[in-house]
Design a protein around this nucleic acid. Structure first.
Length: 326
DNA sequence: AAACGCTTCAACCGCAAAATG
DNA sequence: GCATTTTGCGGTTGAAGCGTT
């Protein structure tokens, strides 16, 4: 293992006795001996004053290097192992809020370092952007994350957290992912405000669709009647039926080319309880711009837990079609 | 088995902010 | 108030490991 040794000194002090300032500074990977020295010193003297650590612990390292080694590797409260689905989701959500503020983001992921999160973003997230042939900070990619990746992660987290949620019937409205008595939908993580004054059309966007999809395993949607009724003509849409399953969701974009969906009334009414879902509304136009259908091969397989598995060629093609075509 | 390409991640760098004297 | 030192952050690099040919 190569270890570079640099001789360095401060140019500003070159007029002073050089021997006092020249020092051998070791760079490159840390050895087990160096780790032991650093750990021993910090356990006795505590963190901080890193230049002193470097000097008094017998390490030919810079203070910065000692600090970094401690924070990113030796700290006892570090969490090892790969980033979990929950952590992935959190990183995406926090990054959409704060951008590349890795240190701030890492505060919300106990045991994870900013370096680790930064590396995750660069190696995994940016790779997805590359595969989708768009910039990681582009609107297209942000949309893909918000409307596809993140809902999908939530779905997987939900399904992995046990099907206990779907077998246990909620007993009051407050426990429902959708609160029938209020003007918003919600799941465990996200609250979408319904804008009553702007009308319901804003509600029927892609995030709404994916929210429905993510929640489709929830028991409260069983027996939910979904009917789409055009009031611009005298016919009923072909979608009247029950159960908010995937076929229902995918029927909507499949029919997007039909003119009769203009001014179509949407109502989702659960007959398993006495509440109405708050999604009743009109104007289907916005749905068709960016809604997604979920290919069957997107379904989980037992080992299919990493989000990058979503981005196989077929899915990328579909997403590009649905997201990026104007 | 060797060569090559790709991915990952530990560690470095420069810069800015905060702390210290 | 100022100069210097220390700390913290985000971007980047390159060695190591792994898979493929």
């Amino acid at each position: 293992m190569e270890v570079r040794v640099a001789r360095c000194f401060s140019p500003e002090t070159s007029d002073v006795n050089e021997n006092e300032f020249i020092m051998d500074v070791k760079k490159g990977p840390w050895t087990a001996e160096e780790d032991a020295l650093l750990m021993n010193y910090v356990s006795i003297n505590g963190e901080g004053r890193w230049n002193s650590v470097a000097r008094f612990a017998g390490l030919k390292r810079t203070g910065k290097s000692c600090r970094l080694r401690w924070l990113n590797y030796l700290r006892p409260d570090l969490r090892r192992g790969s980033i979990t689905l929950q952590e992935q989701l959190l990183i995406l959500e926090l990054h959409s809020r704060w951008g590349n503020r890795w240190s701030k983001i890492s505060q919300y992921l106990p045991g994870r370092t900013d370096n680790e999160i930064k590396n995750y973003w660069r190696t995994r997230v940016q790779k997805q952007a590359k595969q989708l042939k768009c910039e990681v900070n582009s609107k297209q990619f942000r949309d893909a994350m918000e409307h596809v990746w993140m809902p999908r992660l939530r779905e997987r987290i939900q399904s992995l957290s046990g099907n206990s949620a779907s077998s246990a019937q909620p007993t009051d409205a407050a426990t429902y992912p959708v609160d029938p008595t209020s003007n918003h939908t919600r799941d465990q993580n996200i609250v979408y405000q319904m804008d009553q004054t702007a009308g319901w059309s804003n509600t029927f966007n892609s995030s709404f669709i994916t929210e429905i999809l993510a929640a489709s395993s929830d028991s409260y949607l069983d027996n939910t009647q979904a009917s789409l009724v055009s009031y611009s003509s005298d016919h009923y849409g072909p979608w009247e039926g029950s159960c908010m399953d995937k076929s229902f969701i995918t029927e909507i974009p499949a029919a997007s080319s039909d003119s009769y969906v203009d001014n179509t009334q949407v109502s989702l009414v659960s007959d398993s309880s006495d509440h109405y879902c708050p999604w009743e509304g009109s104007c289907m136009d916005n749905i068709f711009d960016v809604s997604f259908s979920w290919p069957e091969n997107l379904c989980d397989s037992p080992g299919d837990l990493m989000m990058e598995n979503m981005w196989n060629e077929e899915n990328i093609r579909l997403l590009q079609q649905q997201l990026f075509e104007d």
